[in-house]
Computed example of a mutant assay.
Amino acid sequence: MDHLYWNLGMCAGGAVFEIGLRGSTARVCLMDDDEYYAYVDGDEYEFFGGFYDLTPVVLEVPYDDHWWIVVDSNPADITVTVNQVFDDD
C-alpha cells in the first residue's frame, strides 16, 4: 500500500506531535505497531486522529509504545511536516 508515513519509534505516553499539511486536506492517523501493520495488510485497524483541512494537527501519544503517523492523501498534492513538540520523558 502506497502511503505517506513516519516511523516515530518508541514514544512515551504524553508525547505530542504537530503535523503540518500544505496543499491538500488529509486523513492523519496516529497508530501503534499492531494497528499500523493491520493497516498495511488491509485488515481492520483503529487510529487516533481524523480528517483535517486546518493545520497544524496536534496529536498526543496515549500510552508508551512504538508509534507511526500515516497521512492519507495524494503525495503529489501535499507537503507534510512532522515535529515532536513535547516529550513526556
Rank of each mutant, 00 (worst) to 15 (best):
D2C: 11
D2W: 13
D2Q: 13
D2F: 14
H3E: 14
H3L: 12
H3C: 13
L4Y: 09
W6E: 09
W6P: 12
L8G: 02
M10I: 11
C11E: 11
C11L: 10
C11A: 14
C11R: 15
C11T: 10
G13M: 04
G13T: 04
G13F: 02
G13L: 01
A15I: 02
A15W: 03
A15Y: 05
F17L: 07
E18W: 04
I19K: 03
G20D: 07
R22E: 14
R22Q: 12
G23C: 06
T25P: 15
T25L: 14
T25D: 15
A26I: 02
A26Q: 03
A26Y: 01
A26P: 00
A26T: 02
A26S: 08
R27C: 10
R27S: 15
R27F: 10
R27V: 09
V28G: 03
V28H: 02
V28I: 04
V28Q: 01
C29F: 11
L30F: 05
L30G: 03
L30E: 01
M31Q: 12
M31I: 12
D32G: 09
D33T: 15
D33F: 14
E35S: 09
E35I: 04
Y36T: 02
Y37A: 05
A38G: 11
Y39C: 05
V40T: 10
V40P: 05
D41H: 14
D41E: 15
G42I: 05
D43Q: 10
Y45K: 03
Y45G: 01
Y45Q: 03
E46Q: 13
E46H: 11
E46K: 12
F47L: 04
F47Q: 06
F48S: 13
F48A: 13
G49N: 02
G49E: 07
G49A: 08
G50E: 01
Y52C: 08
Y52L: 04
D53C: 03
D53I: 05
L54M: 14
L54P: 11
T55Q: 12
T55C: 12
P56H: 00
V58G: 00
L59P: 04
E60S: 07
P62D: 05
D65C: 00
H66Q: 14
H66N: 13
H66R: 15
W68S: 02
I69E: 11
V70N: 07
V70R: 08
V71H: 13
D72F: 07
D72S: 13
N74A: 14
P75K: 08
P75L: 04
A76M: 13
A76D: 15
D77A: 15
T79W: 09
V80Y: 02
V80N: 01
T81R: 05
T81I: 03
T81D: 05
V82G: 01
V82P: 08
V82S: 01
N83Y: 07
N83D: 13
N83A: 08
Q84N: 01
V85N: 08
V85E: 01
V85A: 02
V85F: 01
V85T: 10
F86Y: 07
F86D: 10
D88Q: 11
D88W: 08
D88E: 06
D88R: 08
D89F: 09
D89Q: 09
